[in-house]
């Protein structure tokens, strides 16, 4: 059975007829063709599918699209400014070599954005703890931590 689901993604209203069991991440990747949100493990461990739902970081592989009915979703494609300039958190990842193969990066950035809103001046320990739900198979954690600390400071400074 299919049903209609509607939500706002990156500020744009979207809707589609989908199967009830469709995961939010499948809806984003397959229906909307926004493939920046990745499926790394399909078991809510790796965090590559992290998006924001109503301003909060969630793992889009762990909810069905129906649960996001009417919600405001932000994916990695909606993070940079409209003119293509990187968001301070994205810029911090670039400057601090916080990515290698880049597969985990969208999830890392989405999680870091939510974290930095609540921790404008985080300690290294707090950043490391915030990464509990995001895996990097390149094992680039050291520079990811540096990036998030720099990104959080830049976000706080630009307020």
């Amino acid at each position: 059975m299919s049903l209609k689901v509607s939500m706002k993604v990156n500020g744009k209203p979207v809707s589609a007829d989908i199967e009830e069991r469709t995961l939010l991440v499948s809806f984003i990747r397959e229906n909307l063709r926004l493939t920046g949100t990745h499926v790394g493990c399909d078991t809510a461990q790796c965090g590559a599918c992290t998006v924001h739902m109503n301003g909060k970081a969630i793992k889009s592989c762990s909810i069905v699209a129906m649960q996001a009915e009417g919600a405001d979703i932000l994916t990695i494609e909606g993070v940079a400014h409209a003119d293509g300039t990187l968001h301070p958190m994205q810029a911090a990842f670039k400057e601090n070599h916080g990515l290698q193969c880049g597969f985990c990066t969208p999830g890392m950035v989405m999680n870091a954005l939510d974290f930095a809103k609540q921790h404008p001046s985080p300690t290294e320990q707090e950043v490391r703890e915030s990464l509990e739900g995001n895996l990097c198979r390149c094992t680039g954690y050291h520079n990811i931590v540096k990036s998030i600390m720099a990104g959080a400071r830049a976000m706080a400074a630009s307020k």
Binding site: L34, G36, I76, F93, K94, G102, T105, P106
Partner: peptide, 8 residues
């Protein structure tokens, strides 16, 4: 880096 950071 730019394309990886912007989901493209």
């Amino acid at each position: 880096d730019y394309r990886f950071l912007t989901g493209s």
